[in-house]
């Protein structure tokens, strides 16, 4: 097995130790015929696994991540809100279509948590979903909170209505309850400093 050609299939399967792999890479870089042979072995290896049909949400998420998702019009605003690049904001928006992202809190409330940029280091950042007809219960803001509605129709206890694109500012110590109107879930992006207090109990981060 001293001939480099004999090592090609082993390299294609990733089975060589580091020294042998380096030897093969060097030889392949200098010889197009060897490179073509390695490519053919790698191609064969790539086809070993049985195909499995992916669920539709993976493609939805991927399209969101490259700026072709259904919430794309919010990517610039979310980038500013969360102090991240537009590409990162797009990846956040893609999380809406990833079922595993949602921390289901019961009573029709779901939360997605992610880390914002440096200016948001002290803030809880994420998405909140309120299912149709459900309510996020009365709570007090322990710091300034900014929300951007990305889907649905939100109403607060004082009768103010919010729609996609609207911004909802809640100052420190302010209190409210909010509910989802209409037939589709409300989803909003939220940046909350210091968290909130529900029923006298503080809630922060993933435990919110």
């Amino acid at each position: 097995m001293s001939d480099v050609r004999d090592l090609l299939p082993l390299h294609a399967l990733g089975a060589l130790d580091a020294d042998e792999a380096k030897l093969v890479e060097k030889a392949v870089a200098a010889d197009p015929a060897l490179a073509a042979e390695l490519a053919a072995y790698r191609d064969a290896a790539s086809l070993i696994a049985a195909p499995v049909a992916p669920p539709p949400n993976v493609k939805l998420r991927l399209m969101a991540s490259i700026g072709a998702g259904r919430y794309e019009r919010f990517s610039d605003r979310l980038a500013k809100l969360f102090d991240v690049t537009v590409d990162k904001a797009r990846e956040f928006l893609g999380l809406i279509d990833r079922p595993g992202s949602w921390d289901e809190r019961g009573a029709g409330i779901g939360l997605v948590h992610f880390d914002g940029g440096p200016a948001c280091a002290a803030a809880d950042c994420g998405f909140v979903r309120i299912d149709p007809g459900c309510m996020f219960p009365w709570h007090k803001h322990l710091g300034e909170e900014t929300s951007v509605i990305v889907q649905g129709h939100l109403v607060d206890n004082s009768g103010r209505h919010f729609h996609p694109g609207d911004e909802y500012l809640a100052s420190e110590t302010s209190e409210h309850a909010i509910r989802a109107e209409g037939d589709e879930p409300v989803i909003f992006a939220v940046r909350a400093f210091n968290g909130i207090e529900v029923g006298g109990q503080p809630h922060r981060g993933r435990g919110r």
Binding site: S46, L47, I48, A49, A50, P51, V52, A53, P54, V58, K59
Partner: peptide, 8 residues
């Protein structure tokens, strides 16, 4: 190619 890659 998604099916091939998910299987892998």
């Amino acid at each position: 190619h998604a099916g091939l890659l998910l299987g892998l």
